[in-house]
Design a protein around this nucleic acid. Structure first.
Length: 924
RNA sequence: GGGGCGGUAGCUCAGUUGGCUAGAGCGCUGCGUUCACAUCGCAGAAGUCGGGGGUUCGAGUCCCUCCCGCCCCACCA
């Protein structure tokens, strides 16, 4: 970027708000996020799961979109022509519901407004939330191509919807029919099977007596399975009535038959007879159907074809009438006796049970757990209902989708979701796509108004008149399921059905990142649509990110109101901190818990990490140097070799983690590299040289630049803002270029330097050991101490030879003896020597710190004895307690447990005290 | 009824193909104001890796079993 940020000065305080917005604007203005189709040679494409325009985004979207952004940013740095298509979803039923709720607060219903005004009202909502959502995505740093922003109700996308409907209709894959669907009485629309969420709920299982009528004659003309084998006079209980069990007595008013299993000997004689429907007085036939489970209840079921999927099947097979007994609002309709008309279905249940009891029909009612469908948008109990709707035949569409998965052309991450997908696809049922809503894509079907014509027109463009009779047409009142547009998203956003340049350049896309709960709603259907309409899978890899949950483990959602607004977090901690926290906190497919009450604990580590980078850069940038010329190669200082080795290792690990979508590993190892290797060790080891002059300072300054360029690049996809701000000030050959467009770092394997890592590793252990002993012996903080080494490893010798001064500074040493053969310290392990502390190094060697003169040995010894006495006292008391058989017998297990662990920790404490006393008085 | 996921430090969680002393962040304890950073540094305490059994030279990791929590699917009348 050509701007005036030549200065290496960073402000003294890390203030994300001060940089993020400006950087984002600069990226957009530079056109980094937009690639024209003609220029796309090596595309990498992701389509956003379009957020519903029902509400602002919450942290779940934050996670989902951050993952996508990390993926596209890395590909962009690698030189791919990246397209991330953004957009929003009109979310038919969901959006209609939120606007209806708003109306209700004003005391209105959608019917008060009428269809046109209501839809207008929804558009107003869309304008507001659509913009808010896009704003949120920008603030968390999403590098979408905003020039290609789409909305599922856009003209082009609506065209795609119609095109698909017409094509499916032509292939007889879409049909209209009267079948059992899931009906939401509150939304007053049909739902697909997926939109009905089953939950266990406690209900009652009622046993009801149905009186039998007539004699034992087999009714003639009826299609009865096994009818020829009827054995008269079976062991029916009393010959006059039969027991039926149901959880939903209110539907009995819609009964049009009873059914038994054809091979159930108990009831063979019943088949073909009739029963009287209590409370209704109608007569209904008994049929035999293998769908009946003879072991459930009495083995006789009531058949209510209009309100139960199984009964609908049985009814169809036996020609039973379909009698819907409810209104759209699930109140009892005119088909039932006067006494029940107008009652809500649950009121009707209570009334009917009472009447059955009064009439002596009720045998009993037992508690019974069963699962009940609920509307996924308003949670109302779904009513299964026979209804005239439009459906898509799914089996033919699903077949290629299964094949692609089996051939591994389609991969899921984590893999286990592949099997979930597969089993759903293999057991797929037809998709009810019509909705009795006002908000959505109107079904492109017109019915001729002429009474004797009956022509049905299915067309992409609105027809003017009936093609058969020229009469007036009436368009189907219903709209399509919102997912009927979503399933085309990868196609329609790129211009399909037109053969656009975008479609040619960017379809198929590469990776889809979404939440597992819409695997069936969306992912599976996109796969089917892609194969059916474009002949190609819409993407090759499906990432299922985890769910963001609240402190209590509940899913964050609009309806629960427990969502965390990403903007609140961005405001407090910065977008980088939020992104880092989300990426680090949720390995692929695992849930992440974020306690709304304690955002600080969750997000401050991310903010602190960015702050650490910032301050490291504040120190390093003034010392950083650009590349040296070829005839002036840098010498390989140990520390420089070391950090290059660590960097190359980090880069290699990060690459494989990125490729495998293990983004949390990148975040984790990046954090460790920057904070540990780079800040804690490399910067400290370099200070001496950087403060100097000449070759040393030049080499260190150059390596400093190289290392920073490396980790800033590798972490840029995750924390784009702070890394960009810092990298913009590096004085190397890439100076002034944005990190956004790369290049992606690639280091030679030769940089991995086991010798240097071994040496600095030994040095780290040595420094750590000295520090630990200093703390252990309560040496004054600033005191310079002499350390003696015995048999140091080669690695440590090597490190100390070059980094003695740094080591001395880091560990507070005045001298290190014992490196030379002629000044070996005395035996530090056994008695007889001077008072001092010693430690054995894992990497080899021992170190010894003479304590004489550093501390008042006598005073310290006295202190240790006092401490020892105190610990001994506690020990004996605790020991006695545990020895006491009564205590063990009577105390709760956890108290005994606690006492045991207390005892063992006291023992350890005592051992340490003993050791320290040994140091002070080796002769003892 | 079928399938899946999880149980590792007080809390939230990491721990690829079984391998040297099980890690991080937060919290906790002690110490620390000289020149990048108190949004920090150093040191430390803290874990029977849910229980039991098995395979192995070696198991948090593989197998079996049990217990606990969660999720998905299902035509549980």
């Amino acid at each position: 970027m050509a701007d005036s940020r030549k200065s290496s000065e960073l402000s003294s305080r890390y203030d994300p708000a001060a940089l993020e917005g400006a950087l984002y604007e600069r990226w957009v203005d530079a056109g980094f996020f937009h690639v024209p189709a003609a220029a796309a040679k090596r595309p990498y494409v992701i389509v956003i799961p379009p957020p519903n325009v029902t509400a602002a985004l919450h942290m779940g979207h934050g996670l989902n979109n951050t993952i996508q952004d990390v993926l596209v940013r890395r590909r962009r740095m690698q030189g791919f022509d990246v397209l991330w298509v953004p957009g929003t979803d009109h979310a038919g039923i969901a959006t209609q519901n939120v606007v209806e709720r708003q109306l209700r607060a004003e005391g209105l219903t959608r019917f008060d407004l009428g269809r046109e005004a209501f839809v207008e009202r929804v558009w107003k909502w869309v304008g507001e939330y659509g913009d808010r959502i896009i704003g949120q995505l920008r603030q968390i740093g999403c590098s979408c191509d905003w020039e290609r922003t789409r909305f599922t109700l856009d003209e082009g996308l609506s065209k795609a919807v119609r095109e698909v409907f017409v094509r499916l209709h032509e292939k007889d894959l879409v049909y209209r029919g009267r079948y059992i669907i899931n009906w939401c009485p509150r939304c007053q629309t049909a739902l697909s099977n997926e939109e009905s969420e089953h939950r266990d709920s406690g209900g009652k299982l009622y046993r009801i007596r149905y009186p039998l009528v007539g004699g034992g004659d087999v009714a003639d003309g009826r299609d009865v399975i096994g009818g020829g084998d009827v054995v008269g006079g079976g062991d029916v209980t009393d010959g006059e009535e039969v027991e039926v069990v149901t959880t939903r007595p209110e539907t009995m008013l819609g009964d049009t038959g009873l059914a038994v299993h054809p091979e159930d000997d108990r009831y063979r004689s019943l088949v073909g007879r009739e029963a009287e429907l209590p409370l209704a007085g109608r007569r209904i036939p008994v049929v035999a159907d293998s769908l009946v489970d003879p072991d459930f209840g009495s083995g006789v079921v009531k058949v209510t074809p209009a309100h139960d999927p199984n009964d609908f099947e049985i009814g169809r097979r036996h020609g039973l009438a379909v009698l819907d007994v409810m209104t759209d609002a699930a109140r009892m309709n005119d088909a039932v006796p006067l006494a029940y008309r107008g009652l809500d279905r649950f009121e009707a249940r209570a009334r009917i049970v009472a009447d059955l009891e009064a009439g002596g029909f009720l045998v009993d009612a037992k508690e019974h757990m069963h699962s009940v469908g609920h509307c996924y948008r308003c949670d109302t109990v779904v009513e299964p209902r026979a209804s005239l709707q439009w459906f898509v035949r799914m089996k033919p569409l699903a077949r290629p989708g299964v094949a692609a998965y089996e051939k591994s052309e389609l991969r899921f991450h984590p893999e286990r979701y592949g099997r979930v997908y597969q089993s759903w696809m293999e057991n797929i049922r037809d998709w009810c796509i019509s909705r009795q809503l006002w908000w959505g894509h109107r079904i492109p079907v017109w019915y001729c108004a002429a009474p004797d014509c009956g022509e049905v027109t299915v067309a992409v463009d609105d027809p003017d008149e009936c093609p058969a009779c020229g009469g007036a047409l009436q368009q189907d009142e219903d709209v399509l399921d919102t997912w009927f547009s979503s399933w085309l998203w990868p196609l329609s956003t790129l211009g399909w059905p037109e053969q656009t340049e975008d479609l040619a350049a960017f379809y198929p896309t590469d990776t889809l990142v979404t939440a597992p709960e819409i695997l069936f709603f969306w992912v599976a259907r996109m796969i089917m649509a892609g194969q059916e309409f474009a002949g190609e899978l819409p993407f090759t890899d499906v990432l299922l990110n985890g769910t963001v949950r609240d402190g209590r483990g509940r899913r964050m959602s609009k309806s629960l109101g427990n969502g965390i607004d990403p903007l609140e977090v961005v405001g407090k901690y910065g977008a980088d901190a939020m992104r880092f926290t989300l990426i680090r906190g949720s390995p692929l497919g695992t849930d992440i818990r974020l306690d709304h009450e304690n955002l600080e604990a969750a997000f401050s580590p991310g903010r602190n990490f960015a702050n650490k980078m910032w301050n490291a850069a504040r120190f390093a940038l003034p010392h950083a140097r650009g590349d040296v010329s070829e005839n002036d190669p840098p010498r390989a200082a140990l520390a420089d070799r070391w950090i290059r080795s660590r960097l190359a290792r980090f880069a290699r690990d990060a690459d494989s983690a990125y490729e495998a979508f293990r983004l949390h590993e990148v975040a984790e190892s990046g954090h460790n590299f920057v904070w540990g290797d780079f800040c804690d060790w490399y910067l400290e080891l370099s200070k001496r040289r950087l403060y100097g002059e000449g070759d040393d300072a030049r080499d260190a300054g150059r390596t400093l630049t190289l290392a920073m360029r490396g980790w800033l690049s590798i972490l840029h996809p995750i924390m784009p803002f702070v890394t960009e701000e810092i990298a913009g000030r590096l004085p190397d050959a890439l100076s002034g270029r944005s990190l956004v467009t790369g290049p992606w770092p690639d280091y030679p394997d030769e940089w991995i330097d086991r010798e240097a890592e071994g040496a600095i590793g030994a040095l780290q252990e040595f420094v750590g050991a000295v520090r630990a002993l200093r703390a252990e012996c309560r040496l004054p903080q600033g005191a310079r101490i002499a350390v003696q080494l015995r048999d140091p490893s080669c690695a440590l010798r090597m490190a100390l030879a070059e980094e003695a001064d740094s080591a001395a500074k880091l560990a507070g040493l005045s001298s290190v003896e014992g490196l030379d053969g002629d000044s070996r310290p005395g035996d530090v392990r056994t008695g007889g020597g001077p008072a001092g502390a010693h430690a054995v190094l894992r990497t080899g060697g021992e170190l010894f710190i003479p304590l004489e003169g550093l501390i008042d040995v006598d005073k310290e010894r006295a202190r240790l004895f006092a401490e020892l006495e105190r610990v001994d006292g506690l020990l004996s008391r605790s020991g006695a307690k545990l020895d006491n058989a009564g205590f063990i017998e009577n105390a709760p297990a956890e108290v005994v447990e606690r006492e045991r662990s207390k005892l063992s920790s006291l023992k350890e404490q005592r051992a340490r005290l003993g050791e320290k006393l040994q140091w002070l008085d080796p002769s003892a």
